[in-house]
Design a protein around this nucleic acid. Structure first.
Lengths: 206, 206
DNA sequence: GACAAAACAGACCGGATGGTCTAACCTATC
DNA sequence: GATAGGTTAGACCATCCGGTCTGTTTTGTC
């Protein structure tokens, strides 16, 4: 892991990560070109390959950064022990996440590229695997706890439930973000959260 | 449109289309390689480029073929005028579609690659644009009629509703098809349709 | 100022992509 | 049997991809 030993100064690190986020947000994890990232960053190929072993290892750093940033701003969802509090907690967490997303549209686009239920149900590959595994474990845990509380339906296997959640959320979020990006179509984030939570309840409730 | 003037004999046409379907099913519309399709088809590059102007124009033929085949087997969804019959009609249509899909897994994978709510809400590009437009118009019409009947909720804009439908359907279908492909995990298609229609109702009902 | 090592620039590489081109091969017509 | 035109094989091309490598500059040490 070269990137850990060789110390890269903060400015270059930032411009590389920013370039990567921009490129990935624009073209998706698969469509992103390392050459373009390097060009965008203003660094030379030699410099970049001096610090990072390969595309994959830069990706890893980028994803760590994104994950760190998200968790720092939004934290983790703590499912309460009180059944009646379940959806309220979900709502306020979702609201926080949406707020973060709204002011970090590029960054969140990277995440969305991973959560995106594109190619089958295969969550992230390569560099994206670990952070996505963490996220999945975490959601499945939340689902399980919700079921134990009696707040969530138990007649569907959790894996399918979670995939439905993912794709539905992804779609509704897409709708929101498109409007957030577009100044001419103002949108009420509060109303959206209300609506979305309602849809989730409809699908997830017993 | 060269492919219309130069008549290509049926065998070659078939092997090309089959190769394309196989390749697209395996790698998605974006990931599919024309070189591999050509190789797979057993024809030479010269021959293929003699009949088709480029990758795009073969894709167009393939999609026409897929659309034709689907419509031939499943037909179009005719929304009844009787409100109480709405979901019953949807169920039986969905059932027919699932049956077709089950015996045409490769073909349906091509369609799924298009319906897939990947990159934003952008339905098909290039060759995929027209057939997808048709499909979209058709679904939106059905949604509208369902709303007029009072069978569907009217508090969400149809575009969002249709995207939710798409992604949710895509996800549930993925779950089913994975099991259909895998002999060791038998699955009851009837029960699946019942479950899926139930989910749709939950999301779409007023 | 000398020297070594770290830091960097960018030409270059092999392999993929979609697409072009030419030489040859059939086959129908005279 | 010669000729012409439809058909075909596959070498070739530009461009992109991620990645390597060599030569040069910068920096730190004595």
């Amino acid at each position: 892991m070269r990137s850990r030993s060789r110390r890269l100064d903060e400015d270059k690190r930032r411009s590389l990560i920013d370039a990567a986020i921009e490129e990935i947000a624009a073209n998706g994890m698969d469509g992103a070109s390392y050459n373009r990232i390097i060009e965008r960053s203003g660094l030379s190929k030699g410099a970049v390959y001096y610090y990072f072993e390969n595309k994959e290892s830069l990706y890893r750093i980028v994803l760590e950064e994104v994950e760190r940033k998200f968790l720092e701003a939004v934290g983790t969802l703590r499912i309460p022990d009180d059944r009646d509090a379940f959806w309220g907690v979900c709502r306020s967490y979702y609201r926080k996440a949406i707020d973060f997303a709204a002011s970090n549209l590029k960054t969140i686009e990277v995440v969305r590229g991973l959560v995106d239920p594109s190619r089958g149900a295969s969550l992230g590959r390569g560099a994206a695997l670990e952070p996505m595994r963490r996220a999945e474990r975490w959601v499945l845990y939340a689902l399980k706890k919700g079921q134990d509380l009696g707040a969530l339906r138990t007649d569907v296997e959790p894996e399918l439930l979670w995939n439905m959640l993912r794709s539905l959320g992804h779609t509704m979020d897409s709708w929101l973000f498109e409007r957030l990006r577009d100044d001419e179509r103002p949108v009420d984030a509060d109303a959206f959260v209300e609506f979305a939570i309602d849809v989730y309840r409809g699908v997830l409730s017993p």
